[in-house]
Design a protein around this nucleic acid. Sequence first.
DNA 1: ACACGATAGGTCGGTTAACGATATATTGGC
DNA 2: GCCAATATATCGTTAACCGACCTATCGTGT
Lengths: 115, 115
Amino acid sequence: MAPSMREPTYFILLAMAEGARHGYAITSTARELSAGRVRLAAGTLYGALDRLAADGLVEPDGEEVVEGRKRRYYRLTELGRGRLREEVEHLEAKLAASRKVLSAPGSTRVAGRAS
Amino acid sequence: MAPSMREPTYFILLAMAEGARHGYAITSTARELSAGRVRLAAGTLYGALDRLAADGLVEPDGEEVVEGRKRRYYRLTELGRGRLREEVEHLEAKLAASRKVLSAPGSTRVAGRAS
DNA sequence: ACACGATAGGTCGGTTAACGATATATTGGC
DNA sequence: GCCAATATATCGTTAACCGACCTATCGTGT
């Protein structure tokens, strides 16, 4: 079973789910989607992009130069999209579990605690 | 801003939200709550317990011997419960963001892609 | 002319959670 | 006697993330 994604990775993939993006655009999209919570550090972003490409979750989608600045585009693969959807399911399962537990005030001890 | 918890940590805290537990019981409760997904390795469990205690999210709640086996109990602190609730909010925010993005089929490019 | 912030890409070393392996010890079933 | 389950603990490794730093362009303000 693949371990759950960390938050930066999750938002990097999610940012690309809307369409291909170049690195810097991923940073701002992730920031928006997370309501400001996720501010991707350069090391996190480019490291993750290399890793995700090696794992086949994203792939390069060409380069271009806009106003003198090079842009490297990446696109989510079908595998990446599937992995993202899987992650959403885990999120839902986690939430379901927490509702079951946190609704009850609970300070109960597990079976038969003797003094 | 505190970084998001990893899955094992989340389920360790969630297991204790129902009531005080000893280490081994946390392992089985976490396994149940996660529908079998989270199988805590010993190193993960006891390492996390020490770390969480140092951070004030959990605290020791006595020891006892049951059938010749020592049990070390831990309890969730108010801080820990708050941190858990905070994490649930982040989970909800993440889900809201992902629904917004994944509902649309989206293979759009970000503004004005030439060529 | 110069500084600075935003845009755009990248590297590198350090921190830390998680993990598997290993160890100890007891109880109970085969 | 051996193994699985119960129970706790340590140790070394891996992997993700992060801050710091570097290069470079463009526009704005001084």
